[in-house]
Amino acid sequence: MNKLFSEKLKKYRKELEVKRNEKVGQVRLAEELGISKGAIGNLENGERVPSKKILVKLAEHSKKSLSYWMDGVEEYEAPNSVDLVLDKMIEKGLITDTDISDEAWEIIKKAVLLEIERKIR
């Protein structure tokens, strides 16, 4: 279903193994991300499309951008970066109502620009 994403996820696990100099299996990565081992297995096998929450968790864990993880995910399958950013900002309490701070607007602006870039390339 999603070969490019599954290859990135496998590659990321291998990068962790090299960095830590120890085996990082699907179970361990799943635990670190707070998702099931079955979800990791299905993602690595290309049998499942990553959810918004999984994409955000991978971005935070890996310190790689959401764009990196979403690249290659079909347009109809991928949540857009604005949606992901808004969800995360609400979760972190940066947005609690429609009175949005200048700092939050700057973050939203960057997400919109990323989404525009993604759509026109």
Rank of each mutant, 00 (worst) to 15 (best):
81 S>D: 07
29 L>H: 07
103 E>A: 10
51 S>H: 02
96 T>Y: 15
51 S>W: 01
60 E>L: 01
61 H>Y: 07
12 Y>D: 00
49 V>M: 04
106 E>L: 07
69 W>Q: 06
91 E>R: 13
117 E>S: 14
54 I>M: 05
94 L>W: 10
94 L>G: 04
83 D>K: 09
42 N>K: 13
107 I>E: 11
105 W>K: 11
1 M>K: 09
96 T>L: 15
75 E>K: 14
83 D>C: 08
97 D>E: 11
26 Q>D: 01
53 K>Y: 07
23 K>Y: 11
121 R>K: 14
31 E>R: 13
98 T>Q: 12
89 M>V: 05
104 A>D: 11
94 L>N: 12
94 L>Y: 12
82 V>R: 00
120 I>H: 10
91 E>Y: 05
102 D>Q: 13
101 S>F: 08
102 D>A: 12
33 L>A: 02
28 R>N: 03
70 M>R: 11
93 G>Q: 04
29 L>Y: 01
32 E>A: 04
11 K>S: 07
13 R>D: 00
45 N>R: 07
27 V>W: 06
4 L>Y: 08
121 R>V: 09
41 G>N: 12
115 E>K: 11
36 S>M: 13
70 M>L: 14
60 E>P: 00
56 V>I: 15
32 E>Y: 00
48 R>E: 09
58 L>T: 06
36 S>N: 02
37 K>I: 06
67 S>Q: 09
5 F>E: 06
119 K>R: 15
118 R>M: 03
112 V>Q: 13
88 K>G: 03
42 N>T: 07
49 V>Q: 04
31 E>L: 06
101 S>N: 03
107 I>L: 15
51 S>Q: 05
41 G>M: 03
68 Y>F: 15
19 K>Y: 07
47 E>Q: 09
13 R>N: 01
84 L>P: 05
26 Q>Y: 01
57 K>F: 00
102 D>W: 06
30 A>Y: 12
112 V>P: 05
12 Y>S: 01
94 L>T: 02
81 S>I: 15
81 S>R: 03
44 E>N: 10
6 S>F: 10
101 S>C: 09
121 R>G: 04
89 M>P: 05
72 G>V: 10
10 K>N: 05
97 D>M: 04
65 S>D: 05
41 G>C: 06
23 K>D: 13
92 K>V: 05
92 K>G: 03
46 G>R: 02
98 T>N: 09
39 A>K: 06
36 S>R: 08
43 L>D: 02
28 R>E: 11
118 R>V: 02
